[in-house]
Lab assay of single mutants.
Amino acid sequence: NQASVVANQLIPINTALTLVMMRAEVVTPMGIPAVDIPRLVSMQVNRAVPLGTTLMPDMVKGYA
């Protein structure tokens, strides 16, 4: 099973992602693959992402 990107903290809307905000976890359903974490750094979320939420492609501006 491939790990997905999960929020390590509450990420407010329009926040630029940093490594500290994300962790890799095997979850269902799968979200953004953990291998993409370096690519996500400095991209912004388009909604508030609660702690423990799996990041989906439509939550990150410019990802999809």
Rank of each mutant, 00 (worst) to 15 (best):
V41Y: 05
A16N: 06
K61P: 10
V27L: 11
Q9I: 11
N46T: 14
V20F: 06
N46I: 10
E25V: 03
I11E: 01
I32R: 00
R39T: 13
A64E: 11
P33A: 14
V41W: 04
R23I: 09
A34H: 10
T28E: 15
Q44I: 12
L40Q: 00
L55I: 14
V5M: 02
A16Q: 15
Y63N: 07
V49W: 02
A3G: 09
A7W: 02
M21F: 07
N8R: 06
V60P: 01
A7K: 00
P50M: 11
I11D: 00
T53N: 14
P33W: 09
V45W: 01
V35L: 09
V5A: 07
M59K: 02
R39A: 10
T54F: 02
P12V: 06
T28A: 10
L51T: 12
A34S: 12
V26M: 13
N46D: 12
M56R: 04
L55A: 00
T53H: 09
Y63V: 04
M56E: 10
M22Q: 01
V27Y: 03
P38L: 05
S4Q: 02
V41P: 03
A34R: 03
S4W: 02
T15Y: 04
N1P: 15
I37F: 04
L17E: 01
N8H: 14
P12N: 11
V49Y: 02
V26Y: 08
S4L: 02
I32M: 03
E25R: 03
A16M: 11
P57L: 05
I11N: 00
A3I: 08
M21A: 05
E25K: 03
V41D: 03
G62E: 14
E25D: 13
M21I: 04
P50A: 09
N8C: 05
A48F: 07
P38N: 07
V5T: 05
K61W: 07
I11F: 01
A64G: 15
R23H: 12
V26D: 15
Q9N: 07
R47E: 15
P38S: 12
K61Q: 13
V35Q: 14
V5N: 01
V26G: 11
V35E: 15
L19Y: 08
V45F: 01
N1W: 08
S42K: 07
A34L: 03
A64N: 09
L17C: 01
P50K: 12
D36V: 04
P38Y: 05
V49R: 03
